[in-house]
Computed example of a mutant assay.
Amino acid sequence: MASRTLGRRQAAARAGARAEAKAPADEGSWIEVAGLEKVYRPRRSEPTHALSDIDFTIKRGEFVSVVGPSGCGKTTLLKILAGLIPKTDGTVRVAGRDVSGPLPEVGMVFQAATLLPWRTILQNVMVPVQVQRLNVREYRERAEDLLKMVGLEDFAGKYPHELSGGMQQRAGICRALVHNPAVLLMDEPFGALDAMTREYMNVELLRIWRESGQTIVFVTHSISEAVFLSDRVVVLSPRPGRIAEIVDIDLGRPRDLGIVSSDAAGVYVKRIREHFSAAGVID
């Protein structure tokens, strides 16, 4: 019942976001990146060319992963999409809006849960509501629904140190979803978890994605994880990061963990890994 109520609210919120957008994106270009360049120019050292000539579009509701060797600009790309750092050149649009700073349509999950230790789990989930000065009463109910959706309803009053790493990450995902973002950006969110917890979180994330309807851009170092989760995988070259290939993953949905060891998934893993082997880089 809670999931159905949550779904109706999310649908209404997404409709409102579309109505408010200055230039609504069509279904084929919910996220648009064209000619993206990023050069870091520190004051006391040489410039670093992080990203070069990046072009791609993402459809509304897609799950897209980004993979590449360390230092290729994966996190930089995500931060630009989130409006956390400026691009050097090119065009970046999310939900029909040029990205020149953080957008309400975008939520982000970081490598660590980064929960505030002095706040309860429910209070942590409510942080974006307070920052954006949204209706606390309305969004508190939504926060409680989200915690129930990820199995944390009994931990709403607990503090972060009382939860496992996987539970903290689930709370972080709830925090990113609480204000109804059209796009969820995830930067290696499960990298610090043990293998079994990571597998569980992958399955949990697919369920959350299916029920929430968000567009997800997911950065990972794991090729098999990217193949398991994604509709498409963007493969970046070593720095400066360029798009080596965008691979369509045709494995059907819904998916379970059994598909990870299938021959069909193995073909995609091998295809992606060959980009790094050819460059002398093993991810």
Results as ranks from 00 to 15, higher is better:
His179Gln: 15
Gln132Met: 08
Trp209Cys: 11
Val127Trp: 07
Val129His: 14
Asp283Ala: 15
Ala95Thr: 08
Ala23Val: 14
Leu84Pro: 00
Glu153Phe: 12
Val39Asn: 04
Leu103Thr: 00
Glu225Leu: 06
Met167Val: 12
Lys38Gln: 12
Val227Thr: 09
Ser277Tyr: 15
Ser100Pro: 11
Tyr139Ala: 10
Glu141Ile: 11
Asp194Phe: 14
Arg44Asp: 14
Val183Tyr: 11
Ala156Met: 10
Ala95Cys: 09
Tyr139Gly: 10
Leu177Tyr: 08
Glu274Trp: 04
Glu138Ala: 05
Val109Asn: 09
Met126Tyr: 04
Thr75Trp: 02
Ile282Trp: 11
Leu78His: 00
Phe228Ala: 08
Tyr200Ile: 13
Cys72Lys: 01
Asp55Arg: 10
Gln169Thr: 12
His221Leu: 03
Leu257Cys: 05
Tyr139Asp: 11
Pro240His: 00
Ala244Ser: 12
Asp250Ile: 02
Ser65Leu: 01
Lys270Leu: 12
Ala2Phe: 11
Asp263Trp: 15
Ala171Phe: 13
Ser230Leu: 03
Leu251Asp: 03
Val183Glu: 07
Leu81Cys: 01
Ala15Leu: 10
Thr120Ala: 06
Met186Trp: 02
Ala182Gln: 07
Asp145Asn: 10
Glu141Val: 14
Ser100Gln: 10
Gln10Asn: 14
Ser222Cys: 06
Ile208Phe: 12
Gln123Cys: 12
Phe190Pro: 07
Arg18Leu: 08
Ala264Trp: 09
Trp209Leu: 10
Gly266Asn: 04
Gln169Met: 13
Leu77Arg: 05
Cys72Asp: 01
Gly101Lys: 05
Arg14Asp: 13
Arg9Asp: 10
Val125Ala: 04
Arg44Ile: 14
Ser212Lys: 10
Ser3Glu: 15
Asp187Tyr: 02
Ser164Ala: 13
Val217Asn: 05
Glu144Val: 11
Glu153Arg: 13
Arg43His: 11
Arg97Ser: 10
Gly73His: 00
Ile58Met: 03
Gly107Met: 03
Arg253Ala: 10
Arg133Gly: 09
Glu46Asn: 13
Val131Trp: 14
Ala17Tyr: 06
Pro189Leu: 06
Asp256Ala: 01
Leu116Arg: 06
Ile249Arg: 00
Gln130Cys: 09
Ala195Val: 05
Val94Ile: 03
Ser164Gln: 13
Arg255Ala: 01
Glu274Ile: 08
Ile246Thr: 01
Asp89Asn: 00
Ser45Val: 08
Arg242Pro: 01
Gln214Ala: 15
Met196Gln: 15
Ser3Lys: 14
Tyr159Trp: 09
Ala171Arg: 05
Thr220Glu: 10
Leu134Gln: 05
Ile259Asp: 02
Ala19Leu: 10
Phe110Pro: 02
Trp118Lys: 09
His221Arg: 04
Phe276Ile: 02
Asp194Ser: 06
Leu177His: 12
Ile249Val: 04
Leu205Glu: 08
